[in-house]
Nucleic acid binder design. Structure first.
Lengths: 225, 225
DNA sequence: TAGATTGTTAATCGATTAACAATC
DNA sequence: TAGATTGTTAATCGATTAACAATC
């Protein structure tokens, strides 16, 4: 949409995930003043193959230089553009419990262009409360605020029991992407996307790994899977 | 290891993930007093195919009854056993920042048998502070406490800059599984497992989905992927 | 028995890897 | 030129799905 390269058709979620990891690494390398980096170097850092790295990056255009490698600065721009990080994303946060409060203090979102523009809670006792720079608003303000900020993304940090009902309201308001912290499967219409972060489930996964392949038979499993 | 069924070889992480989701659903169904459930019903709720459900469950033994379906109560037992949820898991938490505080208040862990037994922080200003029932301890107590509790799991909620160093210490102490909230790829030796929860990365993923397949061409993407 | 639903096989689909000619 | 490293093809691997005989 901007850079001359750029041809990405539809990347798989697995690929998009790795693109995020490449981006992180490249930013670190650029900060260190590294001039060029090879697919083998990136691969080693992430614990994957060099062929994988080249294939992922080739999907974004001809960004590598045979015999040389990739230029971090150039690649960073394309990755940011591909991932939509060149835009600023207004995000609404639903829920004002402990997790929501922690998320409000987390600087990592804003650093990537995700700005929490409003916080809502169904509990009248929490409405009006001030959390850092935000004031908790009642749910019936949601539609109006989403429209005003043209927000497409929402973070859902409410109890599992109410998650689906809130998700329905979000969809109604025109939200297109939901980051769901409630341990529930959300049903949403086509065109709306849900990414779930289920903390207990991740621990269960870890417990399974530790219990089953306890011996030295296993390799390190990092983020991507 | 207990039930007569049980034969699970090595399940893929994708499968283990789905087993967690089946378990959640089955517990809800049992609470509703549902007597039997078919693979098609489970599949529909999760947005996957019935063949997938049957294949996943068949990997745990002959648990289904042709013409009838599955008995939630029976299946729940096998799933809990498979996932290691019949045991209690002591967990150490490293970091006492905002995220760590939110995690301490989260009830979902204990409900699944994961008990945070100690909290550590490198910052002397935080050591000694009381958070609910916990008192923040200095890092040099870690080895001793891990040994005393025979903890195999750790939750890492420290800044990215120190994550790798802390992970090295955890490995040194004999920790076998790390739930990593720092936005970094951790290098750990074989036999030690890492599951990463990278909040900014999840939002990036969502942003990509919303930006690229904005139209109604896409289906809902739920947890599993 | 007729109807429902399993477990499993074979076919399909998609993602990863190895290998290497092309390029700098 | 010799050495390094890409982009891409073909081979491999693994996961999902369709279909159906077996079972209750």
């Amino acid at each position: 949409m901007s850079s001359e390269h750029e041809k990405s058709g539809r990347l798989s979620l697995l690929t998009v995930n790795r693109l995020s990891l490449y981006l992180r690494r490249l930013e670190a390398l650029e900060a260190e003043g590294v001039e060029t980096v090879s697919s083998a170097q990136l691969a080693q850092h992430l614990g994957i193959t060099d062929a994988q790295v080249r294939k992922d990056l080739a999907a974004l255009g001809h960004l590598g230089y045979p015999g040389v490698g990739y230029y971090p600065r150039e690649l960073i721009g394309v990755l940011r553009e591909t991932l939509g990080l060149e835009s600023q994303w207004p995000v609404v946060l639903i829920g004002a419990g402990n997790l929501a409060r922690a998320l409000l203090k987390y600087r990592g979102f804003a650093r990537r262009g995700f700005h929490i523009v409003a916080v809502f809670d169904a509990d009248p006792a929490k409405v009006g409360e001030t959390l850092d720079q935000w004031t908790v608003e009642p749910m019936d303000r949601l539609a109006e605020r989403v429209a005003a900020h043209q927000a497409q993304l929402a973070i859902l940090a409410v109890p599992a029991a109410t998650a689906q009902a809130v998700a329905d309201v979000l969809v109604e308001c025109g939200i297109k992407g939901i980051l769901n912290f409630a341990p529930t499967v959300l049903r949403v219409p086509p065109g709306v996307h849900v990414v779930g972060v289920d903390l207990a489930m991740q621990l269960e996964q870890l417990a399974y790994l530790v219990r089953s392949r306890t011996a030295a038979d296993a390799h390190s499993d990092t983020l991507p899977e």
